[in-house]
Amino acid sequence: MAAISVYIISKAGGMIYQYDHNPITIEYEKTFSFPLDLVLEFVNNRLTVTFGQMDNIKVGHIILSVNGIPLSGRKLTDNRDVMEVLKSEENYPISIKFGRPKLGTNEKIVLASTFHSLFAIASQLSPEPHCSGIEVLEADTFKLYCYQTITGTKFMVVADFKQSGIESLLKKIHELYADYALKNPFYALEMPIRCEQFDVNLQAVLEQVEKTGMSNI
């Protein structure tokens, strides 16, 4: 069962809530001999594979550690430059750990506001009148469901493409939002949701979805 992520986007396009349910980590370690048959480049200050997919190492994966020493930016934590280490033959055989880059909070905020505008453009480019924004977006690895309330708040769920009945989950999340976030006197509208009750109940619902499916929500 794949991860389900929940995003709540305010009517201004700001991300006010995000939760990943059992996120998947993709990591793979491999020992290399000289010369390295991968093309590596710095993208967004992370050493990324740009050419030469092999085994489980895919283009877009980043280097997490070299010989067990973690990488931060361009330097290893023992203060050696990672490119120097990979270039010199005496360091080989070398063991490198690759992984799929994880989304940071800032990146999630950017993605949420990107979706907010894509949603609006999709309804603008419609060939039919009176069209809503994106309701379901399909990719080969996941499906994204979006539900916009009449007040403009968007609930967005990223789920496995095989998972069905997400529409009822969206309604349920809306209900939880109304019950635990909006009824909380300390919650300011359009601001990030920090309500413990909301977290607890949302997790319980997602747990239930994972175990028994959508039918009894």
């Binding site: 794949a2 991860a3 992520s5 996120p23 998947i24 993709i26 895919k58 877009g60 994966h61 799929r100 989304l103 990146e107 993605l111 990107t114 979706f115 505008s117 894509l118 999709a122 309804s123 419609s126 060939p127 039919e128 009148p129 009176h130 069209c131 809503s132 924004g133 994106i134 309701e135 379901v136 977006l137 399909e138 990719a139 080969d140 690895t141 996941f142 994204l144 990223v158």
Partner: peptide, 28 residues
Amino acid sequence: SLKSFVQKLSPVDCKDGFLNYRTSRYKL
């Protein structure tokens, strides 16, 4: 934007990436 959005949001590595989206009135 959809292409890069999908690539970043995907929980696992994707091959084809973005396929289609559906609104209330049409499907792209």
